[in-house]
């Protein structure tokens, strides 16, 4: 595309745009500054809501800590003896 074609394209994009009189622009009332506190209030409210709603972090459930409801059935009498080496306090003498 040549520069002349580009120029005519831009002119067609701007065609029909008659500017309003400068006096009308200058006579407009001065814009009011938008108050900043609604934005701050919304951010604070959203933060508080997020903190309240956010799910609490629970400690991960590990396999070691897990105990099935029927595990008590495995606790047969004498299990304690099998867990470690039995010690006999003979006080240095054989029976």
């Amino acid at each position: 595309m040549t520069d002349d074609e580009m120029k005519s394209l831009l002119e067609s994009a701007h065609s029909g745009d008659t500017p309003p009189p400068i006096a009308a622009i200058l006579a407009r009332p001065a814009p009011r500054r938008r108050p900043w506190w609604p934005a701050v209030a919304i951010v604070v409210a959203a933060s508080v809501t997020a903190l309240l709603v956010w799910p609490r972090q629970r400690p991960p459930r590990t396999v070691v800590a897990y105990r099935a409801p029927l595990d008590f059935l495995l606790d047969v009498p004498g299990t304690d003896l099998l867990r470690d080496v039995p010690r006999f306090d003979l006080k240095g003498t054989l029976p």
């Binding site: 394209l9 831009l10 067609s12 994009a13 065609s15 029909g16 745009d17």
Partner: peptide, 17 residues
């Protein structure tokens, strides 16, 4: 925008914009 002289012209402007 304010009415342009003809439809083809309007379409061309809309396309370029």
């Amino acid at each position: 925008p304010p009415a342009a002289p003809n439809l083809a012209h309007n379409l061309d402007r809309a396309r370029v914009r």
